[in-house]
Design a protein around this nucleic acid. Structure first.
Lengths: 114, 114
DNA sequence: TCTATATATAGCGATAATGACATATAGTCA
DNA sequence: TGACTATATGTCATTATCGCTATATATAGA
């Protein structure tokens, strides 16, 4: 009855849309590096800026994007704001992609042409 | 010395870029559904079109995008072309995202506002 | 209150992704 | 060869994303 008959991942359209949304948000070099940096624990905006060597408004924007998607959460302490990864499973996603990269390097599966 | 000191995921800029690229390609409802559909094995373009109820040029475009990134691979048989997932780790990525979705549903971590 | 610091938001031009459509190519069979 | 089926490609308007700059807000301390 459902549109996903035959789907082993059991993704209905709602889950699909949500998954695409999360993935799209993570699929950005700066945001990946931020998540990577936060993997070891929370960091202030200033520390993240320093680590990525990027302007503060840019970082703030990326942080807010990820926070809006529930990927990060934040905590204010004085006039600093600390961000951390809200859900470890996002880290897992990146691990998977990294593993994918390695597998592909190994077998040279990147074929741009036929 | 490297730019990723402190990074536990050990992603250098090359890997970061590649990971972002893969994720960006996967981060699309139609492409997610295609991967989902192909999870159980190869399918022809026509079968994928039927499953997604989408026009053939649209599906072909999505398939070619994913093939170019090494996510899918294809095989011609007569005048049909069969596509399959080139690397199981992409499936893992989707599993992770799905798990992420579930975790977030459970704890209601999606906070659009402060 | 004023000032300094830390962070967030708004506006904008450039660029890229999306999806629809028309058309081209490849293979099969008569 | 020609007709037919299956798939791929090109064009294009719309929309979304990107990253920069200027500015706004929030907090702390004097």
């Amino acid at each position: 009855m459902s549109e996903n008959s035959g789907s082993l991942l059991q993704l209905d359209s709602e889950h699909i849309q949500r998954a695409a949304d999360i993935l799209k948000t993570v699929a950005h070099p700066a945001r990946l590096r931020i998540i990577d940096f936060l993997e070891s624990g929370e960091q202030s905006v200033a520390q993240i800026c320093k680590y990525l060597e990027a302007p503060q408004p840019f970082i703030s924007h990326q942080l807010n994007l990820m926070k809006a998607k529930g990927i990060l959460c934040s905590r204010r302490e004085g006039n600093q704001v600390f961000y951390e990864v809200a859900n470890r499973s996002v880290i897992e996603v990146i691990y998977c992609v990294r593993r994918h990269g390695h597998n592909n390097e190994a077998c040279g599966a990147v074929s741009e042409r036929e």
